[in-house]
Simulated scan of single mutants.
Amino acid sequence: MNDQLIRSAGNAIARFTRGNGRVAIVNYHRVLAAPSPFLASEPDIDTFTWQMELLARCFNVLSLRDALAAIESGRVPPRAVCITFDDGYRSVHELALPVLRRLKLPATVFVSSGYVNGHTMWNDRIVEAVETLPAEELDLAEFGLGVYSLRSMPERAATLGKLTEASKYLPPQERSRLVGRLETLVGESAVEGLMLTPEMMINLDRHGIEIGAHTVTHPILTSLDDASAMQEIAGSKRDLEAIIGKPVPLFAYPNGKVGKDYDARHVAMVREAGFQAAFTTAVGSITRHHDRFQLPRSRPWDDTPLRFGLRLLQWLARG
């Protein structure tokens, strides 16, 4: 019954917006083997599986390449959706790929090239510190970040959210120093190997999962000087093309909030670097009226199939 409701509502939205086809893009980072209180916004494999099954039953799932071509030609099918992942976690290969292959669903992975093959992203160092440190508090006053409570599991989870958000906007050198401090506190790391290897990227590409660029080290672009920002943007394209042996035409802005995380300078840099389209984290669906280098996509938060489906319909109706 819910599937019929979702399909019928999606068809009605398509009829109402005839001549202005719309595509909703869902965005993930990683898929978890089991739920984690420290990564509550990330789906575990069971949640991801029912989400993908709902997309396969109720929506027309397109690759980003096909979606952009359909918008250009004015031939977007009703209930059109794309699937994307950011950063380049190996769980996309290990956990998501088998589900996507079984359901014959295309997707795109936007990879931060500097973390490929064994390196660890800065945010995962923070997760490890908050999750494992035995102390009752984490003192990061020297970085201007204050003191955070680790006294209970809920307080640790709240600390992780606050600290991750604050750390995003540190100058790159300060953030590197913070990561070094956390590594000292944690000691031998248990989070190595979270990211894709070159071999995994090649295998994803061979199975129809497109590789896109997401800068080299995932900085907030507005925190960089122009030369450094251009190196991050163009360098990621160059690195990834060398790995998979084919053009990488799509880019996603780290964090993706216009005016806060990137601005008009970086849109121009993405064009200059030779990308064909770029994606933000704005809510809504893409249409032919959007700037090709500032296309919206959002993370699905809902925890039941009906709410998940209705959320996508809301994006399609919103345009």
Rank of each mutant, 00 (worst) to 15 (best):
V258N: 13
H266A: 02
D291F: 13
S285P: 07
G284M: 14
A264D: 14
D263W: 03
S285Q: 08
V267R: 14
V258M: 12
G259A: 11
H289F: 15
V267P: 08
V267L: 12
T281N: 05
T281Q: 01
H266K: 00
H266C: 01
E272A: 15
Q276T: 08
G259K: 10
Y262P: 10
G259W: 11
G259S: 08
K260P: 02
R271C: 10
A273E: 04
Y262L: 07
G259D: 09
A268E: 15
D291G: 10
A277R: 02
D291Q: 12
A278Y: 01
T280L: 03
V270G: 08
Y262T: 09
S285A: 15
T280Q: 03
T281L: 05
G274T: 02
H289Y: 15
K260S: 14
H266F: 00
A278P: 04
R265C: 09
V283A: 10
Y262W: 09
R271Q: 15
G284A: 12
F279V: 07
Q276K: 11
G274L: 05
V267H: 06
D263P: 03
A277D: 03
H290F: 01
K260W: 03
D291S: 09
T281E: 00
R288P: 00
T287E: 08
I286L: 13
D261I: 07
G259C: 09
G259P: 09
A273G: 05
V270K: 08
D263T: 04
D263S: 11
D263A: 12
A278C: 02
T280D: 03
H290E: 06
A264F: 06
A273Q: 05
A277T: 02
A277E: 01
D291N: 15
Q276E: 14
I286K: 00
H289Q: 14
H290P: 00
T281H: 00
R271Y: 11
R288E: 13
D261R: 12
Y262N: 09
G274I: 06
V270C: 08
V283G: 01
G259M: 03
S285D: 06
V283I: 08
A282D: 15
G259F: 09
D261Y: 04
F279S: 04
G259T: 11
E272I: 04
H266E: 11
F275L: 01
R265G: 09
V270A: 14
F279N: 03
T280V: 02
A273S: 11
H266Q: 12
V267T: 15
H290V: 00
A282K: 14
R288N: 10
R265P: 11
A264H: 07
A273C: 07
T280A: 04
F279Q: 04
A278Q: 02
R271M: 11
H290N: 12
R265L: 11
V270F: 09
D263Y: 04
A278S: 08
D261W: 05
S285F: 06
